[in-house]
């Protein structure tokens, strides 16, 4: 991995390494959405995706002492996210019915999850939108793990080089993974591609 001295996030992470909570908070604020997007589209359960996203950032904090700014911070972050996600997928494969953490363990005094309602579709549009969204999610979730991760990181505007670092493969292999993922999606979503059923926001 090439050195990344000019990465502002790496500079923040070096501050986290020295115990700076504000720097850590800034990193969480910046990356919570892309990390959630990748995890929520890889795992079937949104609540588990959220728990895992929290675990990713806790892991970042715990590993801060070992962090070295040799690569971009986001590469390191998404590598942690991918590893935890793979562990979770393997755990689910072994124990399909068990949740990530037992609910209501009595230890947490946190407020319940607070979601902002971002939907602004009229009812018929919302129905159509919801159906199409579900189809796209389903098609993405059915992709092989490495193709799905490559595509999702690409959608989060992560560079090819970074994706290849996260997946630990060559640049050409990364491009090939994304290409194959898109070909599969085009085949699976063909009816929806042609009808243009996705409404304009």
């Amino acid at each position: 991995m090439p050195p990344a001295p000019s990465d502002p996030d790496a500079a923040l992470m070096l501050r986290v390494k020295r115990g700076d909570r504000a720097a850590f908070e800034a990193l969480v604020e910046k990356y919570r959405q892309p990390v959630m997007n990748v995890l929520a589209r890889s795992l079937p359960d949104a609540a588990e995706a959220e728990d895992l996203a929290q675990a990713v950032f806790v892991q970042v904090f715990k590993s801060a002492g070992r962090y070295e700014a040799r690569a971009k911070f986001s590469t390191w972050l998404f590598t942690i996210a991918r590893n935890l996600c793979l562990n979770e997928l393997r755990r689910r494969a072994r124990h399909p019915a068990e949740p990530l953490e037992p609910a209501g363990d009595g230890e947490s005094d946190l407020p319940p999850r607070q979601f902002e309602d971002k939907s602004h579709f009229s009812p018929p549009d919302a129905l159509l939108h919801g159906e199409l969204e579900a189809k796209v999610r389903e098609a993405i979730a059915a992709l092989p793990e490495n193709q799905r991760t490559a595509l999702l990181l690409f959608q989060e505007e992560v560079s090819y080089e970074e994706i290849s670092d996260v997946l630990d493969c060559s640049l050409s292999a990364t491009k090939s993974l994304i290409h194959r993922a898109r070909e599969t999606l085009k085949a699976r979503l063909k009816p929806y591609l042609r009808t243009g059923a996705w409404p304009e926001n």
Binding site: F24, R32, E50, F57, L110, E116, K118, Q155, W198
Partner: peptide, 26 residues
């Protein structure tokens, strides 16, 4: 068409207190 489908996929919902929850977990 695929670009449009993927681009319009809405962001996963993140609770507004996500950062607070992470800090509490830490």
């Amino acid at each position: 068409a695929l670009n449009r489908l993927l681009a319009r996929l809405p962001d996963a919902p993140v609770p507004s207190n996500f950062t607070a929850q992470v800090l509490a977990a830490v």
